[in-house]
């Protein structure tokens, strides 16, 4: 990651062209959805940044995206692929809910911290077995983590339907967490809470960890050349395992923060695919923690913006997925020209 990046005129021009391309395709899609592009953009921008409420909503929705992306990024530093963020997030959410509705330590802060630690531990546990299989048997972690998502989804479906079902709800969901576990909203009428700062804090910690810590340095070297790392005395397997565990913990934490800060229970269809969106964000951000925040903001703004677009026009809300994907495709295409061919 060390190395000077020159900002040449050509790169600037290409970046502008990239933005132009994305915007024009977006305009085309909005037009196809039955709305004039300019109005469409206006609603999207108003809906995501228009007033302090919308802006806070955009920030709030970044929380799971940032952490899910970080959950991919940290293992990627050591050359591991974590496609299981979705499952780890679900497990983490369940862990937080489990603590939240069953235990009480009396002090709000203690409660919240314990619940978050448990959520991270649950996420970590779900990342542990693919990592273990990988380092012990060289089993491809892409398959195991991917399949883990589906197994986790069914497992959670079972848990919230049977042993931990909220008997008062016709929906499959856990009981609500106790009020002492709730991370309170900071502003009237908005779901924005301290979870955002936790997520940003994690990103900063990761950034410093990677640049300044011996272990972070070992992560980078392991990812860059595992054979070399091994001969340098770095315990490659342990490092890879550790990175995967941290990744799982981050995804679990994302779930925990969602429960404590927003939903206050785990219900069916808890995650609309945070794990996969996180993967995309991470790849667009070259695994860089700070860039992840920027890209997550874009994704989140598109999401809140498209809710607003749906409110005032007849354009269906699915458009946010289309717009996000278009953005990913163009950025991926231009990446080669703008920053050259390098991964991570």
């Amino acid at each position: 990651m060390i190395g000077t990046r020159t900002l040449s005129f050509r790169k600037l021009l290409l970046s502008l062209l990239l933005v132009l391309c994305i915007l024009s395709v977006w305009a085309l899609i909005i037009w196809f959805g039955g709305e004039s592009p300019f109005k469409g953009f206006r609603y999207i921008i108003e809906g995501s940044l228009g007033n302090h409420y919308q802006f806070l909503s955009t920030l709030n929705k970044m929380v799971p995206l940032i952490l899910a992306a970080a959950a991919v990024a940290v293992p990627a530093w050591t050359g591991m692929w974590n496609i299981g963020g979705e499952g780890q997030l679900l497990l983490g959410a369940f862990g937080a809910a489990l603590v939240g509705f069953s235990i009480d330590f009396g002090v709000g802060l203690v409660n919240i911290v314990v619940a978050l630690i448990v959520s991270a531990a649950f996420g970590m546990a779900w990342a542990a077995w693919p990592a273990f299989f990988k380092i012990k048997l060289r089993m491809d972690e892409v398959v195991t983590t991917l399949m883990g998502n589906y197994i986790a989804a069914q497992l959670i479906a079972y848990l919230i339907n049977n042993p931990f079902r909220d008997p008062r709800s016709p929906l499959a969901q856990t009981p609500y967490i106790k009020s002492s576990f709730v991370i309170p909203y900071l502003f009237e009428g908005s779901q924005f809470s301290a979870t955002f700062f936790v997520a940003i804090g994690m990103v900063l910690v990761l950034f410093i960890f990677r640049k300044r810590f011996i272990t972070g340095y070992e992560f980078d070297i392991t990812g860059s050349n595992p054979v070399f790392a091994g001969l340098s005395g770095i315990r490659v397997k342990k490092t890879k395992l550790l990175s995967m565990l941290i990744g799982g913990a981050l995804a679990g934490l994302a779930g925990g923060l969602l429960v404590l800060g927003m939903t206050q229970r785990v219900m069916q269809s808890f995650s609309p695919g945070y794990g996969f969106t996180g993967l995309l964000i991470c790849l667009l951000a070259f695994n860089d923690p700070l860039l992840i925040v920027g890209i997550a903001f874009l994704f989140s703004a598109l999401q809140t913006g498209s809710v607003n677009l749906q409110l005032f026009t007849s354009v269906p809300a699915e458009i946010s997925g289309v717009l996000q994907a278009v953005m990913v495709l163009f950025v991926a295409a231009f990446k080669t020209f703008i920053v050259g061919r390098r991964e991570g």
């Binding site: 011996i214 340095y217 860059s224 054979v227 070399f228 005395g233």
Partner: peptide, 21 residues
């Protein structure tokens, strides 16, 4: 290139490897 160095990393990072332990 394959075993002795991490070609994509900087000279500093390559020199540190091992010694950091």
């Amino acid at each position: 290139m394959g075993k002795g160095l991490a070609p994509d990393r900087s000279i500093v990072e390559n020199c540190m490897a091992g010694h950091h332990k």
